[in-house]
Design a protein around this nucleic acid. Structure first.
Lengths: 106, 106
DNA sequence: CTTAGAGTTCGATGGTTATCGAACTATCGT
DNA sequence: ACGATAGTTCGATAACCATCGAACTCTAAG
């Protein structure tokens, strides 16, 4: 079985993630990153009618939130979704707002 | 045909939920609502140093997103968390941003 | 009816942020 | 070295939104 990352999110990171996910365009960017194996920024520019400055900004925010990890490879920047962080966020969200528990985890 | 009680959020509702969760205070309000059985607005006013206009605004947004259901009982407004909607959101979030999967859905 | 309490609506304000163009840095080919 | 391509940073602008006080509605109880 896969080890559940007990990475409890700090209050601050939780808030950063929520904010990062709040903008539809940024969410869309995240989806593209998730859909591709190695996602160069250039591809994102072609997907959305926004300037590269904006793309760069969104990626920076996603990285700041911990949702995305970026590696520089030459002149390209490859992005990857931090799946564990995403899962930690959803778990924390359910824990906080889910109220009392009803059953154990499926 | 139109009976998907879970895991089927419209694009619009998905965005509304993400936005609703983005504000820390509103998230805190949601947590209090989730923690209490029947949550009157008045209680929320005592929990946070904000005006009742602000509380009312946050509740309205939470309701608009579908995260909270409010029933009027006399002069009181009782709030309840829509747990299924919350779960549908987290499921959709993982589905969209989780990349290729281990948890396959029908 | 009158008073008090609970919640809503409205207009204004201040802070945050998405977006752009332009200037900049860095890398790859030739 | 040069030009082209990838991405960053900066300053400015515009839109959005949380917040407030005040005026309002509605309900419960004297």
């Amino acid at each position: 079985m896969k080890t559940p990352p007990r990475s409890s999110l700090s209050e601050k990171q939780f808030a950063l993630i929520a904010k990062a996910l709040a903008d539809p365009r940024r969410m869309a960017v995240l989806e593209v990153i998730a859909g591709e194996r190695e996602c160069p920024c250039q591809k994102l520019r072609e997907e959305f009618p926004v300037s590269k400055a904006t793309i760069s900004h969104h990626i920076k925010e996603l990285v700041r939130a911990g949702l995305v990890e970026a590696h520089r490879d030459g002149q390209y920047l490859h992005c990857e979704v931090r799946r564990d962080v995403l899962e930690a966020y959803t778990a924390e969200l359910l824990r906080r707002a889910g109220g009392r528990l009803k059953a154990s985890v499926a």
